[in-house]
Amino acid sequence: MTPLLFIEALSIRFNTPEGSVEAVRGVDLQLAAGETLAVVGESGAGKSQCFHAVMGLLPRNAHTSGRVTFAGTELLGQPPRILNQFRGKRMAMIFQDPMTALNPLLTIGRQLTEVLEVHQGMNAKQARHHTITMLEQVRIPDASRRFHSYPHELSGGMRQRVMIAMALLCEPELLIADEPTTALDVTVQSEIMALLRDIRAQREMAVVLITHNLPLAGGLCDRVAVMRHGQVVETGEVNALFQQPQHPYTRTLLQAARH
């Protein structure tokens, strides 16, 4: 059976004024439809770069090698017109800072309805109805009023819920959540993770959770891949990896999480 997402020997380097920097080295990962995978590691491990490559969001100074396929289609090196058949529609990404991901000059409603008008061909009335329904599903109170709000009028947790709503509008097969709770307090973190768990159960979609927080991964995911210095050092089923980590770095992460 072909994996939904297949990453083989992925390497990413960046050309900088100081020289070439290798951020990702020979990463192999795969994800089946409906499966959840946590990609865990400290800042600078290469986690986000791997999935920016999947989404075609790397900057111009990035050079990639290897293979990345989604539902059997190669994504690396494809022009935007090909990638746009997948991005937002069949695979979507939640970014760690919703304040920079959302346009401060447009209302929440306009930003979400635009997704539906572009990708689903809905008219303004259909898109508005669908958007308000989605805002209610991600537990934004008084969604029809919030539809007219600007990003700065919402709390950090509320903005993150808007980003989740935006990612889910086109019912993607794959959701990539890049550090979705980093800037939030502990209570709101728990609420966002509970929301992702519920959504995953309802929609049976594949989820990648990118995080430095191993316990967070354990609450949502089936499998874990641990990254360090641009490489995957260990992968395994969540419970097995938590109980019997094989790599010293994984043991260090688990010990740090327990203190």
Rank of each mutant, 00 (worst) to 15 (best):
P104K: 06
I164K: 10
D142L: 12
M1W: 03
L169D: 13
I176A: 00
L4H: 12
A38W: 08
N103A: 06
L31R: 02
P141A: 13
A183K: 10
P245A: 13
L57N: 06
P104M: 05
V68H: 14
T235V: 13
A257N: 07
R251G: 09
G41C: 10
R110A: 10
E171Y: 05
L209H: 06
A240Y: 01
P59Y: 11
P215Q: 09
L31A: 03
D198K: 15
V68N: 14
L214T: 10
P3S: 07
I12F: 01
L241R: 02
I140D: 01
A92Q: 01
R25V: 07
G41F: 11
R81Y: 09
R25P: 12
A225H: 00
K125F: 05
T16W: 00
T64A: 12
Q137A: 14
M163P: 14
R159S: 12
K89N: 12
P172R: 11
R223G: 00
D222W: 02
R251P: 03
M134Q: 11
A71D: 15
G72I: 13
K89W: 12
L214Q: 13
T107V: 07
E8V: 00
S11Q: 07
L31Q: 12
Q126N: 01
M227S: 04
N15S: 07
E153Y: 00
I108S: 04
T250K: 02
D28G: 06
K89L: 14
M99A: 11
G56M: 10
P180S: 15
N239T: 09
T107K: 04
H130Y: 01
S11P: 02
Q111A: 08
L105H: 08
L29G: 11
M122P: 04
Q111L: 05
M205I: 11
F51K: 06
L116M: 08
M1N: 05
Q96C: 04
G230K: 08
D198C: 05
N239E: 11
G19P: 03
S48V: 12
N15K: 08
Y150C: 07
G26I: 01
G121D: 06
K89R: 14
N213W: 03
G218D: 00
Q246R: 15
E237Q: 09
G66I: 01
S48H: 15
C50Q: 14
T107D: 07
Q243L: 13
G219C: 09
L112T: 10
V232Y: 06
C170I: 04
T2L: 02
